[in-house]
Structures are given as structure tokens and as C-alpha cells.
Design a binder for these strands. Structure first.
Lengths: 189, 189
DNA sequence: CGACGCCTTGATAAATGTCAAACGTCGTGG
DNA sequence: CCACGACGTTTGACATTTATCAAGGCGTCG
């Protein structure tokens, strides 16, 4: 199924009936707070699976960051966990464990300082994209800021700062070249 | 099994072979960063279950916050997930889902401001302790600070601030009376 | 060309951290 | 029983970090 940029894939509190795999593009999960602040729970890149919910309803909504294609597996999660379907259950467990680890790493991110958060974000993205040195950012500064718990101005400043330190280069605002991983890795503590 | 205050129940990277249920006292999961900063993943109160790990090894270590008694269920997680043991698997799933939700709530906490984090922490604790208005804190200011991603000084200041606003009272430093939940709930946004 | 969205930069304000000192509590030992 | 010391907590003065507000630049698409 295809989704246009910023289109909702599912909404917060929707019944959790399907799981999804990104084919192309990128997806974010988020929730909006009463006062307008927005929390981004995670970004999902091609090949990654999202939409798992522990309970009956989604805790986050999911939106296309860019135009995106996703595979939709509509299966009641409870059915998949039945012993009869003993091939699927372990895979669900693995996916769930991955989500938990991701959330824990996110917590780990948020206790750090601003430069550390940005550096960690870049390294993590580069790792997942399997790009040796050049990363194409699918998401806007606002998305990054809401994921890192910073403002867009701070994210922008940290990037310029990293550029001045020759750790990265910014040919365009959405394209980032990792010039010196050692500097980034030293930053993330 | 009994553990003395600050005793390790298991260490980070230990093989994940058992799960645990708190009988009395309190337990924290944490990891220490290279530069000495400490992240607390969660606190567990009597009745709550901890020690679930998605993978083969623990991502956090677990320590007794106070003298504590815990039930230890030594069972290979993989075994418990076998279809043959079809009574345990759904329960494990529920516990895992609870952990995921807890981690997501923790992320939600960390994107807030200091007064919001402290207020949320107090309300959450009161809810889990099922105390109508008086909460006995098992953990030190340092534990709270490391959980909330703040310094002990900031935690202390936020508490005095809440006390001055008549939202809480502090008969002793480890005992907190919720005087005005409305003030606290307004704070957490 | 012009308008709009997105990003960057600067000046300033607010929040939080750091350092230092004082206070209280509690347990220990005289 | 009291005095002392260790530890945890609170408070204050100050430094640093990050947010806020405002302006300007840059690219894209009509």
C-alpha cells in the first residue's frame, strides 16, 4: 500500500489489527500532547517492521515521513500467538523484543546532552541505512527535533557545530557526509 | 530470595535465564555510562515482575533499592515460549508488552520539563502504590534524579517548589503527602 | 518572478547544571 | 546518654545549556 508524504497509516487508539513492513520511504510513529508538543517514538526505514502493539490499541499513530510503500499484514495479533501457529509466535517475540530495545535506547538518548543526541542519531541512522559515509535524511529538522526532545534551532546549531568540527559535511540540508566518525563516537560518550 | 540494600540481583550482560517478582522492598534496573552517569530504566514495586529481556542477555543490571525479597523463576525464556507450554506464552507476552509500554512512558517523561517530570513521577508512584495521598519513597534523590534525567539538586528544588505551591507536603524527605492532585495533574500537561 | 516552506543564524531569556556550603538524621562508639 | 561522623538532603550563587523570539537566506514550485 502506498502513502503520500505526511499521510496517516494508522491513528493513536486505533485497534491494533495489522503489522506493517516498510518497503520504500520512511515512517514515523508519534503522538501529540495536549499543548501541541509532539513526541516521535521511532523512525522506520525500508525493511523494518512497525505497528506492533502490546495491547489491543495503538499507543502511537504512524505517518509517512516521505512518500512510502508499506506491506500490510492484517492478522489479529492474538491469533498469531496461538500455539497452533507455532511458526509465527517466536518471530513476533523477536519483533517485540526489538521494539523494547529500541525504546530503551531512546530513553538512553534522551538523558544525554544536545550534541550527544544529534551525534547518536546520525550514527544510528548511518548504521541502519548501512551507508558507509553519506546519509540521506528522509525527515525534516522538526521530525528530528521531536524525536530527540530538542528544538529545531538546537538541532540545526548542533549540525553546524559538527560541521565546523569537521565531523560531518552538509552538501545539502538533507544530505549528511560522515567525515570523522571518531569525533562523533567520542561525543556520544 | 533476599537482597540487602544496593545488592546486585543480576548484572548487565548476564545471561537472561530467570524472571523475578518483587515480594517486598523495591528494585531498580540501571546501567552506568562510561563517564559515570547512571541511567535508571525502571523501579519495581511489590507484585511487579522484572528481568524480562528480549534477547539472551540482560540490557540492564538490577539492584535492590531497599532490603528486598524477590521470587525467582528460573526458566529458560525460550522454553517458556514453546507452543507446548501454551499457558505461559500469553502471560510472557503480556509482561513484555507491559515493559514496552513502561519504556515508552519513560520516553514520554523525558521530553518534558523538570517540574513535569517530578510531578509525573509522584503521581505514577502513588498510582502504583495505590496510596490515596501519602507516598513512602523507597529510593534516594539520586535514584530519582537518574531516573528522571535530572540532577539531585533540581529534583530537590522541584519538590520544594511543589511544597510551596501546596501541591505536596514533605513531613520527612522520604515521605510525600499529595495535598492537591489537581495542581500536579495540571503540571504534567 | 513571487510565495511558501524549510533551514540557519543571532540576540536574548529561561531552565537546568555545577560548585560550595549548611543542615538534618541516623547510627556508632565513647 | 551524649558526641561525633557519615550520609543524604536542601539551599544559594553562579555558569552553562537550551529554548524562545525574530530575522534572513535558500531552494522549490506555482
Amino acid at each position: 500500500v502506498s502513502f503520500a508524504r505526511n499521510a496517516a497509516i494508522y491513528e493513536e487508539d486505533d485497534p491494533a489489527e495489522c503489522i506493517y513492513q516498510v518497503v520504500s520511504g520512511a515512517v514515523r510513529t508519534c503522538r501529540t500532547l495536549v499543548d501541541g508538543r509532539r513526541q516521535i517514538g521511532a523512525f522506520y526505514l525500508p525493511g523494518e517492521v512497525f505497528g506492533l502493539a502490546g495491547g489491543a490499541r495503538h499507543a502511537f499513530s504512524a505517518e509517512a515521513v516521505t512518500d512510502a510503500k508499506v506491506l500490510v499484514f492484517c492478522c489479529d495479533v492474538k491469533l498469531a500467538l496461538e500455539p497452533s501457529d507455532n511458526d509465527v509466535a517466536p518471530r513476533m517475540w523477536t519483533l517485540m523484543a526489538g521494539e523494547l530495545e529500541r525504546a530503551q535506547d531512546h530513553v538512553y538518548l534522551l538523558i544525554k546532552t544536545a550534541p550527544e543526541r544529534v551525534a547518536s542519531f546520525l550514527l544510528e541512522l548511518a548504521r541502519r541505512i548501512e551507508a558507509s559515509e553519506e546519509v540521506e535524511l528522509p525527515m525534516s529538522r522538526r521530525d528530528i527535533a521531536d524525536y530527540l526532545g530538542l528544538t529545531i534551532e538546537t538541532v540545526s546549531r548542533m549540525l553546524t557545530q559538527l560541521e565546523k568540527a569537521s565531523a560531518i559535511a552538509l552538501p545539502t540540508s538533507r544530505r549528511i557526509v560522515l567525515r570523522d566518525r571518531a569525533v562523533l563516537e567520542r561525543l556520544i560518550a
